[in-house]
Structure formats: structure tokens, C-alpha cells
């Protein structure tokens, strides 16, 4: 990719991403008021976040892989079950993955 094409790619993609964000904000409020729609948006949030967890934990480009992220996520889940604060959950997960990798696994 030449510099000009790279810049065009960056700018066009950024513009489209902003347009998508704004489009969501411009959806008429009336469309969002029914019980069915609020319930659906709440479920969509759950699905998106869960999917991001899966992609971020076992995704490796376009393949599935089990590495140090899996035990790290298990530690995070345990910490959440024990009502640990957000920062601690994140730090424990990072430390688990980093520790396992330092030992030569994952």
C-alpha cells in the first residue's frame, strides 16, 4: 500500500466509523421507546460484550486457539464471582497471562 492509499484508507474508514456512531445517535427516540425495543437493545449489549470476550479470549486472527488468555479469563471470572473491583479483575487477568507466558506456556 502506498502512503497515499494508506492515508485514504485511514480517512475513509474513520469517516465511515464516525457516520455509523452518529447514525445510532440520530435514531428517532420514538423508535426506542417500546418495551420490546429497550429489551432488545439491552440483549444486544449483552451479546456484543459476550462476543467480544470470546473473540478476545480464543480468537487468533481467523482461527480458534487456546493459550494463556483462557486461564486468565477463568481467574477474572472467579474474581468477579468474589465481587472483586473492576481494576483488580483486569490486573489479575493480565498478571495470569503474563505469568504463564513468562513460564513458557501460551
Amino acid at each position: 500500500m502506498t502512503d497515499a492509499v494508506l492515508w485514504a484508507t485511514v480517512l475513509v474508514a474513520s469517516l465511515l466509523c464516525f457516520a455509523l456512531k452518529l447514525a445510532g445517535h440520530l435514531v428517532p427516540q420514538k423508535w426506542l421507546e417500546s418495551e420490546r425495543v429497550t429489551r432488545t437493545t439491552s440483549l444486544v449489549t449483552v451479546a456484543l460484550l459476550v462476543s467480544l470476550v470470546v473473540v478476545q479470549t480464543v480468537g487468533d486472527g481467523q482461527s480458534l486457539t487456546v493459550d494463556a488468555r483462557v486461564p486468565a479469563l477463568a481467574v477474572a471470572a472467579l474474581a468477579l464471582a468474589l465481587r472483586a473491583p473492576f481494576v483488580l479483575v483486569v490486573v489479575l487477568a493480565a498478571a495470569t497471562a503474563a505469568g504463564l507466558r513468562a513460564l513458557g506456556w501460551g
Binding site: A76, V90, L92, A93, A97
Partner: peptide
């Protein structure tokens, strides 16, 4: 792994 844990904590 920290990013995965952050999403898990949010959901």
C-alpha cells in the same frame, strides 16, 4: 487477556 477480562467485567 486484560482486554478480555475488561469486557467480561462489563457484561
Amino acid at each position: 487477556a486484560a482486554a478480555a477480562a475488561a469486557f467480561l467485567a462489563l457484561v
